[in-house]
Amino acid sequence: MSELVEKRFKITEVSMTQHEAEELPNLLGDASTPVCASFFQVRGELPGFLLLVMPVHEVAALLEPLVGQGEGEMADSAIGEIGNIVGSAFLNHIADHYHIYAAPTPPQVFRDMIGALMGSLAAVLVSGGKLEVPVVRTQLTQNEGVLSAFLLWIPESFSLDELRQSK
């Protein structure tokens, strides 16, 4: 457990930008890039979506010390749980700041092209009438700087201006 704590992700950059939902597949680079991701819906007073995204080739280095291998059920469970811990920490910070409740669902874990995941999310957003969405992007690096991951928060009920004002 100490490895999980010592290798705690450090936030190296936070940005808030508005995007066309249909541009989400290209947000972090090439839509064909294979990633490991954990995906959450956010419930409570800040409904939306939360994702922790890591390039596939960096995941083995993260997971091997924790579960002994880079792939398989236990590895996927670890990815889901890391996403849960990092994502919840993010939501806790916002929830306590604004005295509200915001909680993630259990994770869905993916190993696939980022375009397939983000495109499917875009379809959900567009079908709900959201052609444009704010994206809060947090870049995370491990202490040794080896792994770079992104935490993406896409709130459904705020526009970018509303978010910026309340910051």
């Binding site: 811990i85 919840s88 939501l91 929830a95 409740y101």
Partner: peptide
């Protein structure tokens, strides 16, 4: 034992 350590929870 949870990651959801916000005040209200």
């Amino acid at each position: 034992c949870s990651a959801l350590g916000q005040e209200s929870t």
